[in-house]
């Protein structure tokens, strides 16, 4: 890829809060305060043209929220998102924003919820074509839909059926066909294979890799599964409690993980080669995001935590091509 260095998407200090307070009346009666959940906090990264950036983390780490912020399903509470140099996070949706948005599409996790059960597959796949006005002639639309269905490994006649007539893997193929029908350059994939069986997951991952090579797509790939990510990602960002704790090239991250949380995630990956390595069970669980720990939010579970970690929030700092947010790494303690 010649344009591998050109930045397509850039997030700058992006944050998103959710108001999870009790209803107004309850707050008044019970005297409960307003409660904000910082789902995403101070996240910055960029995605280069043609690459796959994966975001990994456990449930509740904010990775899906980041995906939804990028495609505009949520508006960011703080920070800026730029696509191809144009800011798309501004509250007033301008013409430029809309123009940028049509260059990106999203693939969702649940193949049973992401297709309208009352629509025929051909209408589902044709929706972006119609809405974005890419074609108006009936014949042209149906030719395009047939081509898209074939491209994702389905038959053109499958367009006449309803989603419930397909298996989970086939539905995910339909989802991909819909996403591609708007001719996007950038696909946000939110756990696209985690609801699928492993043999089907392999089919979908292979299909996505193939499509990327053929169409020159750029992916943001959200997953909780490091093994899946290792097959698709060029670079990987690790998130914990709404913050990015490490970001590095995939090879580098697997060979030399910096942040203790990344190490923990890698240790928790099951050993399928049966080499006799035991998973290192990690003490503790993800804390309640409503009352995150002080300082570095990972410190209660971290074997390297000291007083500074309890008091001071670490910032993401770059060392060469790797960035991590950890005092211990910064101080060369680990």
């Amino acid at each position: 890829m010649t344009s591998a260095t050109a930045t397509l998407l850039e997030l700058e200090d992006v944050g998103r809060d959710f108001d999870v307070s009790r209803p107004w009346l309850n707050r008044v009666i019970e005297g409960a305060p307003r409660q904000l959940l910082h789902a995403v906090d101070g996240v910055s990264f960029s995605v280069r043209k043609g690459e796959t950036l994966a975001l990994v983390g456990e449930s509740g780490c904010g990775k899906s929220t980041v995906a939804r912020l990028i495609v505009g399903l949520y508006a960011p509470s703080r920070g800026r998102i730029r696509f191809d140099g144009v800011e798309i996070s501004a509250p007033s949706a301008s013409v430029a924003t809309a123009g940028m948005r049509r260059r990106m599409q999203m693939i969702f996790q649940d193949p049973f919820a992401s297709l309208n059960p009352r629509w025929r597959v051909r209408d589902i796949v044709a929706e972006p074509i119609r809405v974005l006005g890419l074609a108006t002639e009936k014949a042209e639309i149906s030719a395009r839909v047939a081509g898209l269905l074939r491209q994702v490994g389905l038959a053109a006649e499958d367009g006449d059926k309803y989603p419930h007539e397909f298996s989970g893997g086939q539905r995910q193929r339909i989802s991909i066909a819909r996403a591609l029908s708007g001719n996007p350059e950038f696909l946000v994939c939110d756990e696209p294979t985690s609801a699928l069986d492993v043999s089907v997951q392999a089919q979908i991952l292979n299909l996505m890799t193939e499509l990327q090579a053929r169409l020159g797509l750029t992916y943001l790939f959200i997953s909780h599964n490091l093994a899946v990510v290792s097959h698709v990602a060029d670079r990987i960002g690790v998130m914990y409690l709404g913050r990015l704790v490490e970001i590095a090239d995939a090879e580098e991250l697997f060979a030399r993980p910096r942040h203790p949380y990344t190490r923990m995630l890698l240790d928790a990956v099951p050993d399928l080669e049966m080499s006799g390595r035991q998973r290192t069970p990690v003490a503790g669980e993800v804390p309640n995001p409503l009352s995150p720990p002080t300082g570095c939010t990972f410190h209660p579970r971290c074997p390297h935590a000291n007083d500074r970690c309890k008091a001071e929030k670490p910032n993401l700092t770059w060392r060469g091509a790797v960035a991590s947010a950890c005092h211990a790494v910064e101080e060369n303690r680990i």
């Binding site: 495609v71 505009g72 399903l73 948005r101 990106m104 969702f108 309208n116 929706e127 972006p128 989802s175």
Partner: peptide, 13 residues
């Protein structure tokens, strides 16, 4: 809140 509605929003309907 189902994903098919979110998909339609992403398309820009």
């Amino acid at each position: 809140n189902k994903e098919y509605v979110q998909a339609a929003r992403v398309i820009g309907r």
